[in-house]
Nucleic acid binder design. Structure first.
Lengths: 360, 360
DNA sequence: ACTGGAAATGTTAGCGCTACCATTGCAACT
DNA sequence: AGTTGCAATGGTAGCGCTAACATTTCCAGT
């Protein structure tokens, strides 16, 4: 067996060449054919690093050199390869945002604020949809961490221990949002959903409502609001209430069907607390279709204070959450971290406020 | 180790060259400290490339080797650096989606479909918001192209010649969506907005409406629908109609104010064609608040067929666009391109359909 | 017994950029 | 004159990975 090899060696030796022959020059290399930094450098008559500096920190490059480089850049149509830059500098310029779903979501404002803030800082947002079930979240985390983003914004708090570990191990700044916990992975900006439930209970009770019902999504945070609401109502001496649960994400349809279901099983309801404005809108719509006067015959309360809440008829009483502020603060957290600044208190409760309008 | 260096120094001295001595070994290198492919390789007792293959194409690696590697991966918590991989393979695994705005948009379904489709293919979506003005679009294009995405999905057709050129020069597969043009940059999936306008005109005319009005956003595509509508109505002998224009993106509020403005200037209207369902919803809401019966006293027509359209009261007559299909086809286009398959006809008109419900 | 070839693994050389340090030239000081 | 300091620029060596080719092993086919 090994003789074959020997033979080969021998034959090489016969030609009096050292055993390991020098490789022939490789065939044409791969590569994109795109203009590169050194193409520009060559054209401008400087070194590559100077071009790099001209683009990143123009202030350290002499004005004429800068002009020559800029000219070369625009003549070649050079666009820096940010993957290469990211690899070399260990700064990807990417920030990941994970959310349950993008569709019709209350988180959109947060994402918008995030995009805006990072855009100004030259970072792009990578979007990941984890779904409401959490099954995909772990796979997503891996895909995201693989990009070595400069930060990760999570919607909700991370529940999978596996995901937590991965995130922690990655050393990437993480901001959890839209919820509160004393033990965030890293940083957090949100508010207490249970407290929302309790305060809504107080608010409705103080307005005289005694026969509440709930139409709620089956997601974790909605559940927190619901139990806060139920507990407080119970503490106030209100009898157990009918509850209608729908699958997240919620739709107008779910709200309509929710009220229909509630009415079918229990007529004795004077207010419906919904886990989202969309749901509340559905309830109001169903009431309208059934000629039930809102709020005289039935009051409705939403959650989120989405853009339409104050413009539907009747204007929706709801809980205002400043989604943009959450996004802004999350971006701030991450940028402070990137720049190595002290972020201060790592848990920020941005609170909420009840907005009394006409529907309750 | 150091002997080599010494030797080098000596030899330089011997040849009495004052020229530069070989550099001393560099100080500790940079780097993340993360586990790398070769760490895993070392642990598994194979070469780096074998680990790479085990992760990308497990079928070409022997089962026991694979097992050893997988064990090493899970023991180290290794997560591949996709930037490095992307740089080496010239495949970033990133796809960019540019849209005017994410908030409350009709494009969300498309983005969702895009995310889903690319997720399955192991690609992540980068989100870019260009705004409705187009000012930011060029800057965004540069930032995006710099990431060397495997594909770019544009919402609407590209209008800036500068942006067009950049995109074309980049050689990245581009899909323009939600509009139609015989001269796309590369590929396109959409429909004709003017045709929507014309067919809506025919539809409403055939239902007997003769005194139309328009509430429309000021964006390009809405303008197309509007002019198609006006021209056809004119051709049908209808007198010029009152038009109320609002700034994109549209809100429920804009719709309410739109109807109020229309009513203030011209009472003689029997149907309002709105450039979005949200606007139409606002018009319906304002009518409700004013006790104007829809559709008896005033008919309303929307555009988009968003999820809520069939569930508001009265159910909204509108134009259905299959946003998910647009997203799916766009993803298909790009993946076919990446895989080097023939994409066939590069312009796909996915059409639209008028959905008659109760509001008109 | 030997060859051909498929399967499994390895070696080498970058992908395009930036960190790190070095060098040069020149004005401003002792 | 010699030194210092600073502004501007350059050289080198990777970042962590994969393409391209090379090598080894082993077995079927003659």
């Amino acid at each position: 067996m090994s003789e074959i090899k020997e033979l080969a060696v021998t034959s090489a030796a016969v030609t009096s060449k050292p055993v390991r022959v020098k490789k022939p020059p490789r065939a044409a290399r791969r590569g994109t054919g795109d203009t590169t930094l050194s193409d520009v450098a060559k054209l401008a008559g400087v070194s590559a690093i100077t071009v790099s500096r001209a683009l990143k920190t123009p202030s350290v490059v002499a004005p004429e050199t800068l002009a020559r480089i800029q000219d070369a850049v625009s003549r070649t149509g050079y666009v820096p390869n940010l993957m290469a830059g990211g690899l070399a500098s260990n700064r990807s310029g990417l920030v990941a945002a994970l959310m349950p779903t993008i569709a019709g979501s209350v988180f959109l404002e947060t994402v918008q604020a995030l995009t805006d803030a990072f855009d100004d800082a030259g970072c792009q947002l990578i979007l990941g949809q984890s779904g409401y079930t959490g099954f995909r979240e772990d796979a997503l985390i891996n895909a995201i961490v693989g990009r070595r983003p400069d930060g990760i914004v999570l919607t909700g708090i991370m529940h999978s221990p596996e995901g937590r570990k991965r995130l922690l191990a990655s050393g990437i700044p993480v901001v959890e949002t839209w919820d509160l916990t004393p033990t965030p992975i890293d940083m957090l900006v949100g508010f207490s959903h249970e407290k929302v439930g309790r305060e809504v209970a107080d608010f409705l009770y103080s307005k005289g409502y005694r026969r509440p019902a709930i139409v709620s999504a089956d997601d974790y945070r909605a559940g927190l609001r619901r139990s806060g609401f139920e507990q407080r109502m119970h503490a106030l001496g209100v009898a157990p209430m009918p509850v209608h649960i729908v699958a997240a994400p919620t739709s107008l349809r779910d709200g309509r069907e929710g009220l229909a279901a509630l009415l079918a099983q229990a007529v004795d309801v004077d207010v419906v607390f919904c886990s989202s404005d969309v749901l509340a809108h559905g309830v109001v719509t169903e009431a309208l279709a059934r000629a039930i006067d809102v709020p005289r015959d039935l009051a409705v309360m939403g959650f989120g204070d989405l853009a339409f809440a104050s413009y539907i008829h009747p204007a929706l009483t709801t809980v205002h959450i400043d989604g943009r502020a959450i996004g802004r603060q999350a971006a701030q957290f991450i940028m402070d971290r990137i720049e190595g600044r002290d972020v201060g208190e790592r848990v920020r409760d941005i609170g909420f406020s009840i907005v009394p309008r006409l529907s309750a």
